[in-house]
Design a protein around this nucleic acid. Structure first.
Length: 281
DNA sequence: ATGGTTGTTTAACAA
């Protein structure tokens, strides 16, 4: 009897598969390489999606990251600006680097991983959009809206498990910003942006995994400006980094971590890492 | 109050 129980328990355990994915706008992968290595050592995610690598492909620090246990790496980088990358402990069966608006800026990269089920992962760095929330006078904002428009056309189907993550540069809900009323005219929280993002989410069948675990009215922030003297005291943050998943993934989501303590690290990013931890049975 | 800080690159830009 005891043996049988033991066998059953082992069998159940062997059928369980944990999977974790993290996202972090790192604001220069070369400048902050030690912080990335520290983060990987602490949290050991299976996949890390990075944004704002600010690194041409020829200079990407592949060897350091390989040595940290991330043998599978794909990146799309350019000089000075933008840049996205995906690091994996497990191999990618597909890789793509679509150029949504034909501008040759590196803001979107996808991979597929197979962990018994196939998961297609989209890593985005949506344009920030500049300062003035008027597409007529501000071409950066017009570009942001165009980028969002393109995202609507792509993700209206779900034939396999999918994750959409990254720095989306939009805080969609009232409790994703420190003051909803004061932020309504500030880029990242204007109605045209938040409505666009919600449309992309609904049309694509995406579930906001962070809010699935930590619903409103709890305030959640993933970014605090460098310009604040005391980011923690003033706490004027925004939730602009996201992890979305297809509906079939929701039952397997264990927890979400917002790794806020990294905001206090020396020479840190203005964004903090977010993790989603799954157990598949 | 239209400030404030940061990284890339080395003056100006994007965030």
């Amino acid at each position: 009897m005891k043996d049988l129980c033991h066998t059953t328990s082992m069998k159940q355990k062997s059928q369980m598969r944990s999977f974790s994915i993290a996202t972090w706008n790192i604001n220069s992968i070369r400048f902050r390489l030690p912080l990335i290595l520290q983060f990987l050592q602490i949290k050991k995610p299976d996949i890390l999606c990075l944004q704002e690598t600010k690194c041409p492909n020829a200079y990407f620090p592949t060897n350091f990251l390989n040595n940290a246990g991330y043998k599978y790496i794909t990146f799309s980088g350019q000089k000075s600006y933008n840049g996205v990358a995906i690091l994996g402990k497990l191999p990618f069966s597909t890789i793509s680097k679509p150029d949504l608006c034909d501008k040759n800026d590196c803001r979107y990269i996808t991979v597929t991983v197979n962990i018994g089920r196939k998961i297609h992962i989209h890593n985005f760095y949506i344009p920030a959009g500049g300062d003035e929330a008027d597409p007529e006078s501000n071409p950066q904002f017009a570009y942001k809206l165009e980028f969002l428009q393109k995202m609507k056309n792509i993700f209206n189907q779900n034939s396999y498990s999918s994750i959409l993550t990254g720095d989306l540069n939009i805080a969609p809900l009232e409790n994703d910003v420190w003051s909803h009323k004061k932020m309504l005219k500030t880029i990242s929280h204007t109605l045209i942006e938040t409505n666009s993002l919600k449309e992309i989410q609904i049309q694509g069948g995406w579930i906001d995994l962070i809010r699935n675990k930590i619903p409103e009215p709890k305030k959640i922030f993933t970014w605090w400006s460098y310009r604040s003297k005391n980011w923690k005291k003033s706490n004027r943050g925004r939730r602009i980094d996201h992890i979305w998943g297809s509906l079939d993934l929701v039952p397997y989501l264990n927890d979400i971590e917002i790794m806020q303590e990294t905001r206090n690290w020396d020479k840190t990013s203005d964004h903090v890492p977010i993790l989603a931890n799954f157990t598949f049975t």
